[in-house]
Design a protein around this nucleic acid. Structure first.
Lengths: 248, 248
DNA sequence: CGTGCCGTTGACGATATTCAAGTGCAGTGG
DNA sequence: CCACTGCACTTGAATATCGTCAACGGCACG
C-alpha cells in the first residue's frame, strides 16, 4: 500500500503538519538503507547515530557478559532512535533488525533544521517522551506482572502501536517475534513462554501462528495484561483506529 | 557543607560552564519548596511540571489498580525530572519524596533561556540521555538478574551516583530506602529482600543499618551485581571520585 | 506506656527454571 | 523427488527461586 512516510503519519497523530513541515520530515528519509533480518544496525560501543525506521521491526537489546540477553524496546515503522544520544560518546546497547528493515540514518544538519521549527520540535519531544514512558512501562511489566500478564501486555502494546500506524489487518497483525524473542523481551525463559502461550491459546485470548497474531477480543487481552494505553499518549488521532470500529 | 547548586556540579561533570552559564543554572533553583518525607510531589494524572531536586531522595513510581507498586527510578540531588514531559497532557506515574526533599519547580521561560545556549542545551540532553539509559538498565536488572544481583546492582548504582556528586562518605553513604522500597524497586517481595540482604551481610558484601550503607569492597559488589557503570556515562570528571582514591 | 512501622522468622506453596529429548516444518542440496 | 539440515516450537520431570501467609520482635515516637 503506497503510504506516506511513516514518521509523517506518526507526528500527525500528535499535531497537524503544514505541507512544508511534512516535506521537511519526509526529507529525513532520503538516503535509505536496508539491513537483512537478525543483523545489528548499531552495536554496543559504536558512536550513536540517529536512525529512522521506515519498514520492518527492530529492537534495542543488551547482552550481559554471561550471554543473557534482554530486549529493551521494540521499534516499529516511524520510530526514531537515538535522536539525542549523540551527546553520549558510545552506545551502551545495540539496535538490531528483527525482520529485514528499511531505514534512514539522519544527518545532524537535517535534525537541526527540524528542531528549529517549534511545532516539529514539540512533536519530536512528544515522540521522545512517549519512548521514555514506554520504557518505564516495560520496567513495570517485568517487575510487577506474572508470565501471562507480561505476554498479554506486550501483545496489547504492539498491536495498539501497529494499529495507530494503520499496520494492523482488522484484529490481526504481522508478528515476527519468535518465542525466544518474547522470552528476552519479558524476562522469562523460552520454555515458560511456550507453556504460557499455549494456555493463552486454549483460553482463546490469542491466535498466534506462523508469525501472525490475531486478537479476537482486545478488551479481554487488555484486562488479563492490566494494559492501559495511557502511557502511549496517543494523540486524538491515535485514540481511535483509522478505520471506524467499535472501541473497547 | 556549603556546596554549589547540585545541578551546576552535575552539569560540570559533563562540560565546563562559564560563570554566566553557571549563574543561569543557579537561577533555576530560585523559588524553592520543601516536601515532607513520603509525600508525592506530582501525582499520576497531574499536568507534568519540570522539577529540579536540590536535596533529599525522591523516586518515580507507579501503582497498578490492584495495589502493586513499582519504583521506576531513584532521583538524587541535582536530578532533573520531566523537563520535556510538558508535551504530554498528563502524568502516567507519580513522583514521590523518599526523604524530606528540597526542590524547585522550573518555570518554562527559564528553561527556554537555558535551551537557547548551545552548551547548556547539550548538557541538558546529556542529562536526559543518561536518565533514559538508567531506565533501560533497570529493565535489564529486573528482567535478567536474580535477587542478589538485583540488589547488588542497585546498591552500586546509587553509591556511584552519590559519589559522583560528592555525597558519599568514603565507603559509606546515607541510604533512606526501606526494605519495602527495595522490594518495589527490584520487583521482589519484601520478605525475599530481607533474606537476600541477610545473605549479603553474612558474606560481607554490604553493611546496611539504620539508613546507612557501607560497601567494604565496591569491586566485589559490582561483580556480584554484574554492574558496569558505563550506562551512567559519567564524564571525565565523574569517572574518578572527587577525592583521589584507588579505583576499582 | 501504648502505637505503628520496620525488620525478621518459619512453614508452605506457587511460579518459573533447568535439562534433556523430541516434533514439525521450511529450505537446501544431492 | 527425497533425504538432510537447521531452526522454532513442544513436552516431561525434577528443581530452584521466589512468593504468600502469619506471627513476632525491636525501636522510635507521641
Amino acid at each position: 500500500v503506497g503510504r506516506d512516510n511513516p514518521l509523517v503519519e506518526r507526528l500527525r497523530a500528535f499535531t497537524p503538519l503544514s505541507p512544508a513541515q511534512a516535506a521537511m520530515v519526509r526529507a529525513l528519509a532520503d538516503p535509505q538503507a536496508v539491513k537483512p533480518m537478525r543483523r545489528d544496525l548499531i552495536r554496543e560501543g559504536d558512536r550513536p547515530r540517529a536512525i529512522l525506521l521506515l519498514a520492518g521491526w527492530a529492537c534495542r537489546h543488551r547482552t550481559l557478559e554471561d550471554g543473557r540477553r534482554q530486549i529493551l524496546q521494540v521499534l516499529l515503522p516511524g520510530d526514531l532512535c537515538d535522536l539525542h544520544n549523540a551527546v553520549l560518546g558510545r552506545m551502551d546497547h545495540s539496535v538490531g533488525a528483527l525482520t529485514e528493515v528499511r531505514y534512514a540514518e539522519l544527518a545532524p544538519e537535517r535534525l537541526e533544521e527540524l528542531e528549529a521549527d517549534p511545532d516539529l520540535r514539540r512533536a519530536l519531544r512528544w515522540q521522545a517522551a512517549v519512548a521514555a514512558a514506554t520504557q518505564r512501562e516495560w520496567t513495570v511489566n517485568i517487575g510487577l506482572r506474572n508470565a501471562m500478564e507480561r505476554l498479554a501486555h506486550l501483545f496489547c502494546e504492539l498491536f495498539v502501536r501497529l494499529r495507530a500506524m494503520g499496520l494492523n489487518d482488522g484484529q490481526a497483525c504481522d508478528f515476527p517475534l519468535t518465542q525466544v524473542d518474547l522470552a528476552e523481551a519479558t524476562g522469562l525463559t523460552p520454555v515458560h513462554v511456550n507453556r504460557t502461550l499455549q494456555e493463552m491459546r486454549r483460553t482463546g485470548l490469542i491466535v498466534l501462528d506462523r508469525r501472525r497474531l490475531t486478537i479476537p477480543d482486545l478488551c479481554a487481552l487488555a484486562e488479563t495484561g492490566l494494559f492501559n494505553a495511557a502511557y502511549l499518549h496517543l494523540g486524538p488521532a491515535g485514540q481511535e483506529p483509522r478505520a471506524p470500529r467499535v472501541m473497547w
